[in-house]
């Protein structure tokens, strides 16, 4: 309860700041829109020359693009800036200020900043999904829709957990931001239809680096029947990754408190 109140305060706080830099706000949104536009264009052009990509038609692919963008925007809105800053907290020692406050350090470091431009950009993928649904290209029943939402949340949770874990490495490595770039690059693959990954790669991208679980699972929940085992796996994996990340973060803090000077 207290944490919810705090988070709402963060939200207000960041809104104020974003108003200070209104120009940037518009540019960021424009950038998001462009990025989405380019991705759609890319697939549109491919579908000019072929009816399906391994059985996926243009509508399912569009849904995937939208879902992937949705997850990206959610991650960018609530976590990205925070996670990126972990290395700065460590390097500049401002982590000390967080540690002396009566507050959960993971909560504070990873939820402090909210990007309203990314939040606003959620509108675009939502519009695409809305269009696909109203034009009858995809159909949602209530149970399917709740499953879709659940898997979407799992996708965000997985991205959050791995992102925090990667940046927690900055307690040991000074160049962790390079790893974060690599991490972003990895997850940019989540916007491709899972069918393109075959054999060992499908295994790799489901179980080792779970990018298929992130955006493809919610889409599969809508377009085909996703096995209960897969749903269970997605939920279990998110929970497990969140737990591991939390443990790892606290381990890093303990290390920080015994090694820093």
């Amino acid at each position: 309860m207290r944490y919810l109140k705090l988070w709402v305060f963060f939200l207000k706080n960041c809104l104020l700041r974003e108003m200070e830099f209104r120009g940037n706000f518009v540019i960021e949104i424009g950038g998001n829109l462009l990025r989405l536009g380019i991705t759609i264009l890319f697939f549109q052009v491919i579908f000019l020359h072929t009816p399906t990509i391994g059985g996926w038609d243009i509508h399912i692919t569009l849904l995937l693009v939208a879902v992937n963008q949705l997850i990206n925007n959610l991650y960018n809105a609530f976590f990205r800036a925070n996670i990126y800053q972990i290395s700065e907290y460590v390097r500049e020692g401002t982590l000390d200020f967080i540690l002396v406050k009566p507050i959960d350090p993971q909560f504070f470091t990873t939820l402090r900043y909210v990007s309203f431009s990314a939040l606003f950009s959620l509108v675009f993928p939502l519009l695409i999904i809305f269009y696909l649904a109203t034009a009858g290209k995809i159909t949602f029943s209530l149970p399917i829709f709740s499953l879709f939402l659940l898997l979407l949340l799992c996708g965000v949770a997985i991205r959050y957990a791995i992102g925090v874990a990667v940046m927690t490495l900055s307690f040991w490595v000074t160049e962790a931001y390079a790893l974060h770039g690599l991490y972003s690059e990895f997850f940019s693959l989540s916007g491709y239809p899972a069918v393109i990954f075959r054999g060992g790669w499908q295994f790799f991208f489901t179980f080792i680096i779970p990018i298929i679980v992130v955006a493809n699972f919610p889409v599969m929940a809508v377009t085909q029947v996703l096995s209960p085992a897969a749903v269970l796996f997605a939920v279990g994996l998110s929970a497990l990754l969140l737990l591991i990340t939390r443990k790892f973060f606290h381990f890093a803090l303990r290390n920080y408190c015994s090694a820093s000077s």
Partner: peptide, 19 residues
């Protein structure tokens, strides 16, 4: 930064192979 070159390439290659 080199892995950053490889991964998008990998995805695009897989994509076209499927097409």
């Amino acid at each position: 930064s080199f892995l950053c070159v490889i991964f998008p390439l990998l995805a695009v290659v897989f994509l076209w192979r499927t097409v």
